[in-house]
């Protein structure tokens, strides 16, 4: 069942169109990713969902509520972690949670929440003395303190080191396992691929595709690449003529063969028949990266 419905969302800043007719739905209990390059309009989209910005066009429903008209009620059902938001330098973690808990009728037990987020020993630490990863976890805690049905997390792992990032991913999965629907904004492929049940690809304010990670990848037709260095010169047409092969490129001594089906087997058979030894043979599956390039004509990560 859909808990968030966005239809034809349009948002313009001054004269710049930031979001241009975006529609998608988020099902209850899933981790829904919003993926796109910098400036794509991801934050603007979720801020409209959170009721922090009023759309210039389109309709939004969150758990049956209109985020602008039913603001007050929405606040009790939706928790948000903003892309840019700090706490006062000298507030202690426990104080912040206790304070925010007091804003809700039926808040979560903040001590338990801190323990779950691995911050139990930081309750008396001032906010300014926390590491980047700890600050992000406090942010997640504050987004969850009101026992929301939906949590919107905007770029929660940006600026974290790989270990902290993986820890945070585990946390998001735990949150989902408690029944919370998670909307996750990110521009990390790996993050989206690993966490999300479904992903909305956004580029330049427009929705490019909504699908599961596997579904998006399958749109590039199971394309694969085989890379190797032939030990002796090789007639490239032998490979190019294979039905499985769509393209052969030469990069210095390296050959890159792109194709579909049982590409690896076809290529190695030709090499064996011609008694050519292949050094550094590698095969690469198409990933979300390739899907993104195929769908938008450009690379996601800078």
């Amino acid at each position: 069942m859909a808990i968030i419905e966005v239809e034809d969302l349009v948002k313009t800043y001054d004269r710049k169109v930031a979001v241009d007719g975006v529609s998608f739905t988020v099902d209850e209990g899933e981790i829904f990713g919003i993926l796109g390059p910098n400036g794509a309009g991801k934050t603007t989209t979720v801020e409209c969902v959170e009721g922090l910005r009023s759309p210039d066009g389109g309709t939004i429903r969150v758990d049956g509520l209109d985020p602008r008209r039913d603001r007050a009620e929405l606040r009790t059902r939706l928790g948000a972690q903003l892309q840019q938001s700090d706490l006062p330098d000298r507030i202690r973690v426990g104080e912040a949670l206790d304070l925010y808990a007091s804003f809700y009728r039926d808040p979560a037990d903040w001590r338990e929440l801190l323990a779950r987020l691995g911050l139990a020993d930081r309750a008396k630490t001032e906010y300014r003395k926390l590491s980047g990863g700890q600050k992000q976890r406090v942010s997640i805690a504050l987004a969850l303190i009101g026992k929301p049905k939906v949590a919107v997390l905007d770029e929660l792992t940006t600026g974290l080191d790989p270990q902290a990032r993986r820890d945070t991913w585990e946390l998001v999965e735990q949150v989902r396992d408690t029944g919370v629907t998670v909307v996750l904004v990110t521009h990390f492929m790996e993050e989206a691929e690993r966490l999300c049940d479904r992903i909305a690809l956004i580029d330049a304010g427009k929705l490019v595709a909504v699908d599961s990670p596997a579904g998006l990848v399958s749109r590039v037709d199971g394309e694969q690449r085989v890379k190797f260095r032939p030990a002796t010169p090789l007639d490239v047409t032998l490979l190019a003529d294979l039905p499985e092969v769509t393209r052969v490129e030469r990069h210095g001594p390296q050959l890159i063969v792109t194709g579909t089906g049982n590409l690896l087997h076809a290529v190695t058979s030709v090499l064996a028949r011609n008694q050519i030894v292949a050094a550094d043979l590698r095969i690469e599956q198409a990933g979300l990266d390739d899907a993104f390039i195929r769908l938008t004509g450009r690379k996601l990560s800078e």
């Binding site: 007050a72 928790g79 948000a80 903003l82 938001s85 006062p88 804003f103």
Partner: peptide, 16 residues
């Protein structure tokens, strides 16, 4: 400072 650091914005995501 509260506005610049997003303290006020975070408040706007709560019922208060």
């Amino acid at each position: 400072t509260y506005r610049e650091k997003g303290v006020l914005r975070r408040f706007s995501t709560t019922p208060v």
